[in-house]
């Protein structure tokens, strides 16, 4: 009886086995790394909003400060989205007839709020407090990036737990004076490390690593 397989089958069998290992490892790697991609974290994804509001224009060019609209940024667990009335403070007279702002005027007339889409959407098992981060001297741009250069706001940070813990482990290197919290493009002084140590003492900044800091 002749051989069923010729000699080249050996090589084929070995290649197949090697490929199977590579495929399995690659598949596992893919599954594990999927959570880091913007497909899951939504980092840098442009989200369609009901109005094409441009932070680049309002903050970068006009120079309106974060707190003018996000009034609760230093007082509440959520920085807040402004009511339509805030838009109308200026747009009652500026671009008062512009078609692009018709949804704003319609909302103001009817009292029905504009339905903005949340960009920074933390999981429901995270109890995040915006005010404490501001009170401890973490700048807006540290987490949100250069909002003043964004025509449409995207999520600048991955907002993964690893990212949170990275700062919670050693918060000092992300501190700045409270007076500079809303500054975009802050130019740190040369003695930055020294200043941050000082601020950490003054603001009583602690490394918060307990589970219950964020999860209840």
């Amino acid at each position: 009886m002749s051989q069923l397989f010729d000699r080249s089958s050996n090589a084929l069998a070995r290649t197949t086995m090697a490929l199977a290992v590579v495929l399995a490892a690659g598949g596992l790697g893919l599954v594990l790394s999927l959570g880091q991609t913007s497909w899951v974290t939504r980092q840098n994804l442009l989200i369609k909003q009901p109005i094409q509001f441009s932070h680049d224009h309002h903050v970068g060019q006009i120079g309106i400060s974060c707190g003018y609209c996000h009034t609760a940024y230093e007082r509440s667990s959520s920085a807040g989205i402004p009511p339509t009335a805030t838009c109308m403070n200026c747009h009652s007279q500026i671009w008062a007839q512009a078609p692009i702002l018709e949804p704003v005027r319609a909302s103001f007339r009817s009292g029905q709020p504009l339905e903005w889409v949340r960009v920074h959407d933390l999981p429901e098992f995270v109890y995040f407090d915006h005010s404490i981060h501001v009170a401890k001297g973490v700048g807006c741009e540290t987490c949100h990036g250069r909002i003043d250069e964004m025509a449409g706001v995207t999520q600048a940070a991955p907002l993964t737990m690893a990212w949170c813990l990275d700062c919670h482990r050693d918060p000092v290197r992300n501190l700045r004076p409270r007076s500079e919290v809303t500054t975009m493009g802050w130019k740190p002084p040369e003695n930055l490390a020294e200043l941050q140590q000082e601020l950490a003492r003054e603001y009583n900044v602690q490394s918060k690593m307990s589970c219950s800091t964020c999860h209840r």
Binding site: V31, L34, S76, S77, S78, G80, I81, P123, E124, F125
Partner: peptide, 14 residues
Amino acid sequence: CRQDMHDQPRLKPL
């Protein structure tokens, strides 16, 4: 790989 726990009917501000 499900988002059920991420997206619970908890009422967040606004």
